[in-house]
Amino acid sequence: MKRGLKKDFTLLAITMIPIGVAINVVAYQLMTILKMPIYLDVIGTCIVAMVAGPWVGLVTGGLGNVVNGMLNPVSIPFAITSMAIGLTAGYLSKYRMLVKPWRIIVSGLLIAVVSSATSSPIQVILFGGVTGQSGDIVMATLLATGKQIWTAVFSQTLLLGVVDKVLAILASSLIVYKMTPQFLSKMHYGDIYMRSKKMNRKGDQVK
């Protein structure tokens, strides 16, 4: 199957992007309704990145922030973070880092680091280190104890982000494994996750 920046954007990949963005929104909505302490709002980006590739994942992440930015422009610069997450998840997936549980957890940690590393500079330079949310209290405390603002912001986002990203990538992997062979066979990067490559007449899967 041909891959690459241009070739990844097949018609099927294109139709996945809106779904990925919407899943991000809906996952976050559910976490809010259930009052869970995590966001899971990268789940859609990760799934798309895993089966359609890093570049499609990148677009999915970025588009989410842009769409959100129409009503709340503050999220627009953080598109860089979402794009980095999509890209990372896609490459991790491509290099088989998401096929075994331990590897998935490590990948989750890596994604959390990428997320903090890309969002912290934006937060500090554009917003004086502030998010307008409860995490700022943590950060203010860190600052009061004498830490530099860069360290404070990075620590705050990393702390809150690790559990969220690890759980999100675990959930994404679980879901991708449950997808049908018909679907995965059409996706450029889906073949790693196909439980079997062939089916016989009765619908049984043959290894």
Binding site: T15, I23, I43, I175, M179, F183
Partner: peptide, 16 residues
């Protein structure tokens, strides 16, 4: 979330 996500993605085949 599980069924919603899977069915939404699988439906893209028909949408194409």
């Amino acid at each position: 979330l599980g069924t919603l996500i899977i069915s939404s993605f699988e439906n893209t085949q028909e949408r194409v």
